[in-house]
Design a protein around this nucleic acid. Sequence first.
DNA 1: AAGGCAGTTCCAAATTCCGGAACCTTGTCC
DNA 2: GGACAAGGTTCCGGAATTTGGAACTGCCTT
Lengths: 260, 260
Amino acid sequence: MSALTNAIEILRCFSSARPDLSFADVMALTGKPKSSTSRLLRSLRDCGLLEQDPHTRRYRPGLLTFELGRLHRAHDDLISMAERELREVCARTGHTGYIAVLDGYEQVVLRIVPGSNPLRVVNPPGQRTPALATSNGRAMLARLTDEDIRARVPATYPKLPRNSPQNFKQLMARLDEIRRTGVSEAADESIEGVGSQGFALKSGETGEMIGIAVSYSVQATTAAERADVRRELAAMAAKLRRMTGDPLDQDTARVQTGTR
Amino acid sequence: MSALTNAIEILRCFSSARPDLSFADVMALTGKPKSSTSRLLRSLRDCGLLEQDPHTRRYRPGLLTFELGRLHRAHDDLISMAERELREVCARTGHTGYIAVLDGYEQVVLRIVPGSNPLRVVNPPGQRTPALATSNGRAMLARLTDEDIRARVPATYPKLPRNSPQNFKQLMARLDEIRRTGVSEAADESIEGVGSQGFALKSGETGEMIGIAVSYSVQATTAAERADVRRELAAMAAKLRRMTGDPLDQDTARVQTGTR
DNA sequence: AAGGCAGTTCCAAATTCCGGAACCTTGTCC
DNA sequence: GGACAAGGTTCCGGAATTTGGAACTGCCTT
């Protein structure tokens, strides 16, 4: 096992759950003897990969990781990062993927990932739709405060497709459901026979939010397939949220009663 | 020279000016033989510290640096406290705020608070600049001992913008002025037409130091506005120093003649 | 076909790393 | 104050990794 491998093993001990570690923590987590841990921690600290709190003596990722991390992100902004993940999911499931942003009470499609299944693409990039009537649109709305939502929805509630929420109360009920379950689903709304599932992704850095959805024909898919999509989306959401530092928990905590 | 040292040497080749590097770039920058470079790059890639673009084959900082970078001082009291205050000042004045730390004779931007005034942000987080040429950088240096400063500044004094101190003596004169007046100001240094005012904040608990600055367009602000910024900053500094137990007086008391 | 570019693999010598044990430091308890 | 424990560092010989020159492999270009 090389010195670099050991160094990485230490670095990988840090996580959002454990953003800083004591000497003893590192020893316990890596299972290495004291002398090795001591030497390695010192090296990592000296080279800037770790920092040590002068008071508590605990270690945390260093300035160098911060600088390098910023450079990594430069190549991978929120949208292209999400698009890459979405492509994989669409390739696996055969369905069509969407990435959109919120603008007022509408959403605008930014990217589309055509699936292999024969389903005509009806929402090209630039397409504007009421966010109230799509899975990812509602997922984005669900992350706003109730106050903010009220301000966005027009005074006279818009006329929406049959299966969409028909008034403000119905809308809030659906958003609460999304907040509770973390799942946003749509079927037979904007387009007859088309369903979708989506979620909202927010960058911890810039605060920008995008909505990601996978869309399919309701008739041509089985319940099992749709459950599979749900699993795929959940995994993608988890991965992307880790990558972008999505501040998911702080968002709605104070506003809603349920915990999410 | 240890394997880790060599690895770090490679990682330090990356910067905002050079966010990705080819094999040849790394070889040229480190001066190491081909075989060593090849082995090391592969190790770094395999462990996640670097990524390789599958198409161009160029290297860039990897996902691991991104994840660790997010953890860097993620819940640092000093910084988040300062950021909160800075946000208020920036909201009131409309100017852009920066929080940075000192690393050698350079500073690294940690946080930025965009102002409402139209001034393009040219120093994103992670940006590295000579601390000698910024208001908050010099404010931080001013709180070190003369001995420490001398050790940090390179033997051959770096070439700095026109309005920055051009040699060690000029630098010390400016630092003494900061120590005397408690005010650090910059104008037309790193960026033409941009001025800033800053101060250094030190935690009495951990001893860590950060530099806080407010930046504005020199042309688009009046002297009165800048005086207002000075008052805002003085108030913020006083408040933060009380909150963090900044041991301001002990710092330089022994070193300098004036009391501040 | 030859040549240059980009990078990998091989190998023996040399350096570094590993980990047990002894040794410091600091804070704590009686 | 003295003893003790926890937390951490230093030492050292044997073991393992690293090193860099040279040869090798693809892959373009001329």
